[in-house]
Amino acid sequence: MNVFYKLWLTFCSLLLTMTVYLVKEDVLLNSLSIYVEHEGVKQLLIFLPKYASCVIYFITVVCCTGLSMVLVRWLSEDQIAVGSIATVETANDAFLPSYLGYFFVALSVGDSGTFIYVFSMIFIFIFFSKISYFNPVFLIFGYKFFHLTDNSGLKIVVITKKELKVPCEVEFYKLKRINNYTFITSEQ
Score class of each variant (00 low, 15 high):
50 K>N: 13
176 K>I: 05
91 A>N: 10
131 I>N: 05
54 C>S: 08
165 K>T: 09
63 C>S: 14
83 G>Q: 13
28 L>P: 00
65 T>N: 02
137 V>L: 08
51 Y>W: 15
188 Q>G: 14
180 N>R: 13
187 E>N: 14
34 I>M: 09
161 K>Q: 12
167 P>K: 03
129 S>G: 10
17 T>V: 13
185 T>A: 15
100 L>G: 07
49 P>K: 09
184 I>K: 00
91 A>Q: 10
13 S>Q: 01
18 M>E: 10
31 S>W: 03
46 I>C: 02
158 V>D: 03
4 F>E: 09
4 F>Y: 12
19 T>Y: 04
112 S>G: 06
65 T>Q: 03
132 S>G: 08
19 T>K: 00
97 P>D: 07
65 T>D: 03
54 C>P: 00
177 R>Q: 13
17 T>P: 00
165 K>D: 09
10 T>M: 11
147 H>P: 00
181 Y>H: 09
59 I>V: 13
127 F>E: 06
127 F>N: 11
67 L>K: 02
136 P>V: 04
43 Q>G: 03
64 C>N: 09
56 I>F: 14
19 T>I: 11
157 V>T: 12
146 F>A: 05
81 A>P: 00
66 G>Y: 14
15 L>V: 02
100 L>C: 15
17 T>M: 13
164 L>F: 06
125 F>D: 09
104 F>Q: 11
121 M>N: 10
2 N>M: 14
156 I>V: 14
85 I>K: 01
123 F>E: 07
35 Y>C: 02
22 L>N: 02
117 Y>L: 15
164 L>W: 02
162 K>R: 15
12 C>P: 11
64 C>M: 15
59 I>T: 11
144 K>Q: 14
53 S>C: 07
126 I>G: 04
142 G>T: 06
55 V>N: 07
157 V>E: 05
59 I>H: 05
